[in-house]
Amino acid sequence: MSNFIQVIFSSLEIGSIYALASIGIILIYQTSKMTNFAQGAIGMYSAYMATVFMRGTGISATLATIVGMAFGLVLGFAIDLLIMRRAKNASPVTLQIITLGIVLFLTGLAPLTFGAVPLAFPRFIENKSIEILGASILYNGILNIFIGFIVVALLFFALQRTKWGLAVRVTAANPTAAKVMGVPTKKVTMGTWAIAASLGALSALMLAPNTVVDVGMMEGVQLSALIACVLGGFQTFFGPVLGAYILAIVRNLFGFYISSTWGTALTYSVILIFIIFKPNGLIGKKKIKKV
């Protein structure tokens, strides 16, 4: 039983990280109709920035996280302003390849600017744990789970109740009509890029204490976040979040109870088979095609 609780809690923690990354991807998908492969790389670069800043000035991990998120925000603005805005008429596959180009650029830039040695990032709350039904859970893990829930809740509140949220939803539904009705779609797209990049930075810094800050740190998260989007469906904002938690729980259960080496491969295979039968994901709506 205690093992099971342990697995569930660690799944919820990693699920929160996936959820934040995947919500960034879905925000960009909804407003720009493209899948962002650079979410992880942006997070990785911002995490490097935060870690180096923290080492240079001696500020706390929490403050460094805010610095990292702010840097992500700027990076998101820059990517939209310098690259994405100029490629408005390109096909979705072309846009996807552009984000892969950004991935290559950031992966190359990181060792050049920060060196090839992996860096360590501390936990928000150091080494205190609590016993829940026989399982010992780190405070930091619980904090990460809460951060995930709170950020997701705030974002959904903003999407449903604020003017910005309305603008995003309108742009997502029909960009041309939204533009005609006076919605500043350019600003909306730029805003979603900035928020997505900032969430990428947050997810990278939540992950960092459990691994190291290095070039490849976000590869797994990027892949998982994309698969979470496929699993939950690209049509709603909520689907990918649900997909992220389900993916994390299923993978950890497979990894713990079936095989620790094949758990991930098995999870991907199961999801691939699932989307063959339900290509629009868990709660996706069917898209009607027009010639």
């Binding site: 490629a87 552009i98 180009g101 290559l104 650029f105 992966t107 190359g108 060792p111 050049l112 090839a116």
Partner: peptide, 19 residues
């Protein structure tokens, strides 16, 4: 000598060519 240079070169080239 940095292993990153080839990546930067490819990344920039992809974006520039596509744009």
């Amino acid at each position: 000598t940095s292993p990153g240079v080839a990546y930067i070169f490819n990344g920039v080239l992809i974006v520039v060519v596509l744009l």
